[in-house]
C-alpha cells in the first residue's frame, strides 16, 4: 500500500485572512481621500452608506442566486416595475402598506416565474431572466404609459430621507436586512442547501432533498427584495419612473463578483458582498466628487467586474 503515499497530502494553505475586496476598498478610499479633501467628511461617508443601501438590498439576494450557479438579469427591470406599482398605489390610495404589498407582490411574481423557468423548464438562468427582463421592462412602460408618476406623498419620501434615533432610515433598513440574510445563509437549512445547489446538486438528490423548490424560493427571494428596494428607490427619487433602475442588476452583479462570490461551485459569502457594495459605492461617490460623469462610472464598474471575474477564474483554475 506504499503507493498511496499521496493521500497524506497537506490541506491547501488557507486564503489570506484579509479578502481582496477589502484591500481594494481601502485603497480606493485612500486615493479618493488624497484627491478630494471632502471625501472623508462625516457627511460624505454617511452619504455613501445611505446611497449604497438600495444596491445592498439587491446584491444580497443576487449573492444567493449566483451561489446556486444562477443569475438574475431581470432584477433592475423588476425593481423599476415594482417602484412604479408602489408609486401608483401610494398616490391613489395614500397607503404605504398597500403600496409596499403591491411592490413586493410584483417582485414575488417575477421571482416565481424566473425560478419556475430555471428549475422546472431547465432554461439556462441567463436567458430565462433576459426574457423576463423584457417582460418587466415592457410592463413598466405600459403601467406608466411612458410617463413619470409624480405627487409622491411626504410620508413616503420620509422613508428615505428621515431618521430614527439619529440614524438615517435607509441605514437601519439595510442593517436589518443584512442581519436577516446573514442568519438565512449561516443559520438555516436554506443557507446550507443554497451552497449545495451550486456545489453538488447530486449530493442533495442523494440526501433526499427536494431542491427544485429551494431554487424557486431563491429567485422569489430576489424578487421580493427588489420590491423592498422599490420602496427606498421611489422615496429617493420622489417619483416613479419607467427607466429608474434599468441596469441596476449590473451593479448588483458587480458588487457580488467584486465581493469574491464565485459563479461556480457554490462559493460565496454575504460579508464579501457588503464590501463589494461599499466598493461600488465608494467608487461612484469618489468619481462623483471628481466630477467624472456617471457614464464613465458605469464603464469603470464594468471593467472592475471583468477584472474580478478574471481573478475568480484564476483562483478556481488552480488545482
Amino acid at each position: 500500500m506504499s503507493d498511496h503515499a499521496l493521500s497524506a497530502a497537506q490541506p491547501r494553505p488557507r486564503l489570506p485572512a484579509i479578502p481582496g475586496v477589502a484591500i481594494v476598498l481601502v485603497a480606493l478610499a485612500l486615493v479618493f481621500a488624497a484627491i478630494s479633501p471632502n471625501f472623508l467628511s462625516t457627511g460624505n461617508l454617511s452619504n455613501i452608506l445611505v446611497q449604497s443601501v438600495i444596491l445592498l438590498l439587491l446584491a444580497m439576494p443576487m449573492t444567493l442566486i449566483i451561489m446556486t450557479e444562477g443569475l438574475d438579469l431581470s432584477m433592475g427591470a423588476v425593481l423599476t416595475l415594482a417602484s412604479l406599482v408602489l408609486a401608483l398605489t401610494v398616490v391613489s390610495t395614500q397607503s404605504l402598506v398597500l403600496g409596499l404589498a403591491g411592490a413586493v407582490g410584483v417582485g414575488l411574481a417575477f421571482g416565481f416565474v424566473n425560478g419556475w423557468l430555471v428549475s422546472s423548464l431547465r432554461i439556462p438562468p441567463f436567458v430565462a431572466t433576459l426574457g423576463t427582463l423584457g417582460v418587466a421592462q415592457g410592463l413598466a412602460l405600459i403601467v406608466s404609459d411612458g410617463q413619470s408618476v409624480v405627487g409622491i406623498p411626504r410620508f413616503l419620501r420620509q422613508v428615505y430621507s428621515g431618521e430614527t434615533a439619529g440614524i438615517p432610515n435607509p441605514i437601519l433598513i439595510g442593517a436589518a436586512f443584512y442581519a436577516l440574510f446573514h442568519v438565512l445563509l449561516y443559520h438555516t437549512k436554506f443557507g446550507v442547501y443554497i451552497r449545495a445547489l451550486g456545489g453538488n446538486r447530486d449530493a442533495l438528490t442523494l440526501a433526499g432533498v427536494k431542491w427544485q423548490r429551494m431554487l424557486v424560493a431563491v429567485y422569489m427571494l430576489g424578487g421580493a427584495m427588489a420590491g423592498v428596494a422599490a420602496l427606498l428607490l421611489t422615496a429617493r427619487i420622489n417619483a416613479g419612473h419607467p427607466t429608474a433602475a434599468i441596469g441596476m442588476e449590473f451593479d448588483a452583479i458587480a458588487a457580488v463578483a467584486l465581493g469574491g462570490t464565485s459563479f461556480e461551485r457554490g462559493n460565496g459569502w454575504i460579508f464579501g458582498t457588503l464590501l463589494g457594495v461599499l466598493t461600488v459605492g465608494v467608487l461612484r461617490n469618489g468619481l462623483n466628487l471628481m466630477a467624472v460623469p456617471s457614464s464613465a462610472q458605469v464603464a469603470a464598474t464594468g471593467a472592475l467586474v471583468i477584472v474580478a471575474l478574471f481573478l475568480d477564474g484564476l483562483r478556481s483554475r488552480k488545482p
Binding site: 446550507v192 451552497r195 449545495a196 456545489g199 453538488n200 447530486d202 449530493a203 461551485r265 462559493n267
Partner: peptide
C-alpha cells in the same frame, strides 16, 4: 465524492 465543496465537514 458526494460532498459539497463550500460547506464545512459537519454540514
Amino acid at each position: 465524492f458526494s460532498l459539497v465543496p463550500y460547506l464545512d465537514v459537519a454540514q
